[in-house]
């Protein structure tokens, strides 16, 4: 393949990944990495390097829109970023030591988890108005708009959320993904933060988390400009368009279709990892 063909094909794949990632809330990384490795035979390490860069672009690019809606909680985000950035450093160091086949298998397992989670959709569950002792000392509680009114919420289980966030950061650094799914689990399930607040705060945190491993990726040579260029530009353009049409899209159906696609990619990644073809 010539450089021109490669760039064009990668840009189109990345655009589609960014578009679908924004529509389904799963992010572009989970699609772009298998697309690069399985379809184009790109080494896993270049793929995760390019994906990490695109993750920063979409997170930062969407931030202004999310802020305007008034859902994200900057205090919760900043505090939990202590955990995600430390995890991200650990993950990036591990990514340099672990072989490509093992990375592909771990990636496949994480994909399966993401697919299962997206089938379940947004959970209900207990929504306390009062924060527990530690969360109130950290002033985590807040309010978010519901049908024009301001709905107050409380926060619980900070240590559990913090621990899960460290795990989310490690996965992000290890695999070059935003790991938004795990971040949402930590906030929504463990800390009882409302789903909308969890997802928008998670988006805010993803860029900072990824930046913590980006330097290590760069110095290891994971970020090859020839691969990262079309991936970053494609995913960013796709994600911005995806965020625009999100309002009119049949999100439920999309999520189900996307989950099946991800599941198929996950199995292929694992098989390729075991047989040593990735």
């Amino acid at each position: 393949m010539t450089a021109w063909d490669f760039t064009a094909v990668v840009w189109i794949l990345s655009f589609a990944a960014g578009f679908l990632g924004a529509l389904t809330g799963l992010g572009g990384g989970v699609i772009v990495i298998p697309a690069l490795t399985l379809a184009l035979g790109v080494n896993m390490k270049y793929a995760i390097g390019a994906s990490l860069v695109s993750v920063i672009a979409t997170s930062s690019g969407a931030a202004a829109a999310y802020v305007r809606e008034g859902f994200s909680n900057i205090r919760i985000g900043m505090f939990l970023e202590i955990a995600t950035t430390l995890g991200a450093i650990l993950g990036a160091v591990l990514a340099g030591r672990i072989g490509t086949h093992a990375l592909a298998i771990i990636f496949g397992l994480v994909l399966i988890q993401a697919a299962i989670q997206s089938f379940k959709g947004a959970p209900g569950g207990e929504r306390p108005v009062e924060s527990d002792a530690l969360a109130s000392r950290l002033r985590f509680g807040g309010a978010y708009p519901v049908d024009g009114n301001s709905q107050e919420y409380g926060v619980r289980n900070v240590p559990a959320g913090f621990g899960l966030m460290f795990g989310a950061g490690t996965l992000s650094g290890l695999l070059g993904i935003g790991s938004g799914a795990v971040k949402v689990i930590a906030m929504d399930r463990a800390m009882h933060i409302p789903f909308k607040v969890s997802t928008t705060t998670s988006n805010f945190m993803i860029g900072v988390t990824a930046a913590a491993s980006a330097g290590i990726y760069l110095s290891r040579g994971f970020i090859d400009p020839r691969v990262a260029m079309p991936v970053m530009l494609g995913v960013l353009a796709g994600a911005l368009l995806g965020a625009k049409v999100l309002v009119h899209a049949p999100v439920r159906t999309l999520r189900a279709v996307f989950a099946i696609v991800i599941l198929a990619l996950a199995i292929e990644m694992i098989v390729n990892g075991i047989t040593g073809r990735v």
Binding site: M1, T2, A3, W4, N43, G221, M229, L233, L236
Partner: peptide, 28 residues
């Protein structure tokens, strides 16, 4: 993105018909 796009345009003008192969990881 604008800088990456400019760099990418330069790269494609100079190297458009280079053979690409990213199968093996070489740190560069």
């Amino acid at each position: 993105a604008a800088i990456v796009l400019a760099g990418g345009a330069f790269y494609l003008i100079q190297h458009h018909s280079d053979r690409t192969d990213y199968r093996a990881f070489v740190p560069g």
